[in-house]
């Protein structure tokens, strides 16, 4: 409990790290912060060209179908892969200054969250401009969905960041895992395409229900099935607790291992 209080006390540090990351990333480039919006927009452009001209799929407006799932997926996968190096990359700080180490993965994941929220602005803009529209009744349900995903990402980042300090290979292994995980999650395809008998397994993957929920709200404009999210909530909380405890154990020797 005192740890949580302490982390709360360090909230300004979390905010500064996020700000530094967001501002620092495009600093020096001509377009600067605009890249935050341009980047997803250009990605979308590529998908549109590829999937509506070259690789036509049976799904209507496939580029949107893909895009609304890909943005939240990128949030998760960058929390997973980038999170693994968030302690190592701040080596000097960890070795020389005291602060609750949890700050680093929290800042990283929150930064990815902010990135996603900024990208979602682009998503909304595209939905409106393309005439697809937004269902105001379904929109509020996005909040719990984002929260659940944040929990999952945070739990995972606690684990990956602390273990990577001791086992540097994890950083590279996780890139492969993230890729496989993406294919096992209905990001590029619909859950309906998964054979009936395999579906229960699919629902065990918390990201399946999260992505499906995003798509329900943004693409199908309907209220998501919250009961499918329950598994994700449970797993999210479980992961967070495991991650928190593991991190607490491993952080004691960070300064020596780095």
């Amino acid at each position: 409990m005192s740890k949580i209080q302490e982390i709360y006390h360090y909230r300004t540090m979390i905010a500064s790290l996020i700000k530094r990351d967001l501002r620092g990333r495009y600093k020096g480039s001509v377009l600067g912060f605009a890249w935050t919006f341009l980047n997803p927009l250009l990605q979308l452009g590529v998908y549109t060209v590829v999937f509506s001209v070259i690789m036509r799929s049976g799904i209507e407006d496939y580029y949107l179908f893909l895009f609304v799932a890909l943005i939240p997926w990128i949030f998760f996968s960058s929390s997973l892969t980038g999170g693994s190096s968030c302690i190592i990359s701040q080596k000097e700080m960890v070795k020389k200054i005291y602060f609750p180490r949890e700050v680093l993965p929290i800042a990283h994941v929150t930064c990815q969250l902010v990135n996603m929220l900024l990208s979602l602005i682009v998503v909304f803009a595209v939905l409106l401009v393309s005439g697809k529209g937004i269902n105001p009744a379904a929109l509020p349900f996005l909040v719990p969905v984002v929260l659940v995903e944040y929990l999952l990402a945070l739990g995972i980042a606690f684990i990956s960041s602390s273990v990577t300090v001791y086992l540097r290979d994890l950083e590279h292994i996780l890139i492969i895992i993230a890729m496989a995980w993406q294919f096992l999650t209905p990001v590029m395809y619909s859950i309906d395409m998964v054979p009936e008998q395999l579906r229960p397994v699919f629902w065990l993957n918390p990201m399946s229900s999260v992505i499906v929920a995003y798509r329900d709200v943004l693409y199908y404009k309907q209220i998501p099935h919250l009961n499918t999210l329950l598994v994700a909530v449970g797993l999210g909380i479980g992961l967070l607790i495991i991650g928190w405890l593991l991190f607490g154990r491993l952080e004691r020797h960070f300064a020596e291992e780095l």
């Binding site: 540090m13 500064s16 530094r20 501002r23």
Partner: peptide
């Protein structure tokens, strides 16, 4: 790339302010 003022905020926040 950030200004001295901005860096004061970052640096001091790391000290827990």
């Amino acid at each position: 790339d950030m200004s001295g003022r901005e860096n004061i905020y970052i640096n001091a926040s790391i000290f827990g302010l």
